[in-house]
Design a protein around this nucleic acid. Structure first.
Length: 514
DNA sequence: CTGGGGAAGGGGCCC
DNA sequence: CGGGCCCCTTCCCCA
């Protein structure tokens, strides 16, 4: 009774849970033990079978070796033949010594044959080794199945990690051959660009490397790689698909978009009767005239390291990754690393406009260079409450990567922390310059990226802005739509006219003195 | 002074 | 109505 009462006393919810847990554990243990016993039985049986087979094999090989030895001895005694002939007779399939390399031996020889070779009393082959017989057998099978060339390629691929990756992914061998045949022609250039966009990893590597890398990249992204799908690239206004985690440069996206943009066509029409200027966004590392030097350096240096996490593929120009931050407090440190309060980023939440949201924690965690090198981060404060968890005390420290132009731009624009900060909701992460709308900051970021999507086919000039290209067209067309009302002077630039008119008004002289 | 490129601001249109 | 995008305008700078 005392025991019972004690038990009754112990039957608290905790004790019940404990009892149940113990029962469950016991049951699980029992199941595990049963299964384990079964498995162990099977394993022991398999091991027994293995041993038996191995023994049988050894015996058979021993028997064959003895027979061979006896025959060899007999023939030696009778005709003193060469060992090669002996081998030929015995095997009937001599394949030449060239294949009997150590590597092949090790490649095909079953590990279990070591014991057999150790026991092998036969040394008749004189150099080839008895184990080579097995090698030859297996090689012959391989050779007949795939051919010598295939075998050679395989051995090469085994040395090349890229090849091995292709093998793993089942990639056609064609992929590895593409780079070797690429010529610096337009098609290859386009393709190279496409690859580049993927990873800034491959960004401005040689086309060969780029291609190879891209192929692998695509293979690794099968099924989810919408970037390589031209139809999925952005077109039109809403053409920039959100591609979180994408690794392709937006330049492609830009290519698709701008080429098909009716607005650009209008621009060309209004700009003149010439349609010579294409709005292609091809990034030709070779032909890229001027501004891309910056991009080249950046890409070579550091961009490629963070591209995958930073770039929103297809969205460099149109839509960079956006950090949506509520009530951001911005502190600018010239050389300090960028840090971002992780709580500020609505991770996993798409932007209300389908924009990519950069997981800054991940980027920073995987690559510290992200913060210091990415010109693509746009910091945006928003009043949206649906953006995910965030506290209202964001603290962002930017790292400035400023070249001379950036400095100038900053001087002009005043940066995010100066001027009409209320209006400038969008910040360039590279120079902290604030912009009133996202489009402007996206255009601005071409300053850092060096992306010039608009190219003139007549002189191969490239421009980051379509309007500048249009104005540039007047160089070729000779159109000077701006004429001075006070003199005969005509100008292609509106501001040139305005500047000229200062001459008439006398405003210019004072400005010059100042 | 002029020619021309780079860059930013902003308006208008469209969805 | 708001946001996004296109395009024009404006300004700066350099050769």
């Amino acid at each position: 009774m005392t025991n019972l009462s004690a038990k009754k006393y112990m039957l608290t919810p905790a004790s019940i849970m404990e009892v149940l847990a113990n029962a469950a554990v016991a049951e699980i243990c029992k199941l595990v033990d049963d299964d384990y016993a079964v498995f162990r039985l099977e394993i022991t049986q398999s091991q027994k079978e293995n041993r038996a087979l191995r023994r049988k094999l050894q015996l058979q090989e021993l028997k064959m070796a003895r027979e061979r030895a006896e025959r060899t001895m007999r023939e030696r005694v009778l005709t003193s033949p060469s060992s090669v002939k002996i081998l030929d007779r015995n095997r009937g399939m001599e394949r030449g010594e060239g294949h009997l390399t150590g590597g092949h031996r090790s490649f095909v020889k079953p590990a279990g044959h070591n014991t057999w070779r150790d026991d092998q009393p036969i040394t008749v082959d004189e150099g080839s080794g008895t184990s080579n017989q097995h090698v030859i057998m297996i090689e012959s099978v391989d050779a007949e199945a795939a051919g010598p060339r295939v075998k050679q390629e395989r051995s090469e691929r085994e040395e090349d990690p890229r090849h091995s990756r292709e093998i793993q992914t089942g990639a056609p061998h064609v992929a590895t051959e593409v780079p070797t045949t690429t010529a610096p022609g337009p098609p290859s250039t386009r393709r190279s660009i496409t690859e580049v966009s993927g990873p800034p990893n491959a960004f401005l590597k040689s086309e060969t490397d780029t291609e190879t890398l891209t192929v692998t990249h695509r293979l690794l992204h099968t099924g989810s790689d919408h970037r390589s799908d031209p139809e999925r690239l952005g077109r039109g206004r809403l053409g920039c698909p959100s591609a979180p985690g994408s690794e392709y440069l937006p330049i492609f996206h830009q290519t698709q978009r701008t080429v098909n943009s009716p607005g650009d066509g209008d621009t060309l029409d209004t700009g003149g009767d010439d349609l010579s200027c294409s709005y292609t966004t091809e990034m030709d590392p070779v032909n890229m005239p001027l501004g891309l030097e910056t991009q080249t350096d950046l890409s070579r240096g550091v961009w490629n390291q963070y591209s995958s996490s930073v770039y929103s593929e297809g969205c460099l120009d149109k839509k960079g990754p956006v950090i949506v931050v509520e009530e951001v407090t911005v502190n600018v440190e010239d050389d300090g690393p960028l840090t971002l309060n992780a709580d500020k980023t609505p991770l996993g939440e798409g932007h209300s406009q389908g924009r990519d949201v950069l997981d800054y924690r991940e980027s920073l965690g995987t690559n510290p260079n992200v913060a210091t090198q990415s010109p693509l981060h746009i910091l945006r404060d928003t009043v949206s409450t649906s953006m995910g968890p965030s506290d209202s005390h964001g603290h962002v420290v930017f790292h400035q990567v400023l070249n001379s132009k950036d400095q100038r731009a900053k001087a002009q624009g005043g940066g995010a922390t100066s001027g009409s900060s209320k209006e400038k909701r969008f910040l360039c992460m590279s120079c902290n310059k604030g912009f009133s709308c996202l489009q402007n900051v996206e255009t601005h970021q071409r300053v850092h990226t060096g992306v010039k999507p608009f190219s003139c086919t007549q002189c191969h000039m490239r421009f980051a802005q379509a309007g500048n290209l249009k104005i540039h067209q007047r160089v070729h067309t000779g159109v000077k739509p701006f004429s001075c009302t006070l003199c005969h002077m005509r100008y292609s630039h509106s501001y040139s006219l305005k500047r000229h008119q200062r001459v008439h008004t006398g405003e210019n002289s004072t400005a010059a003195v100042m």
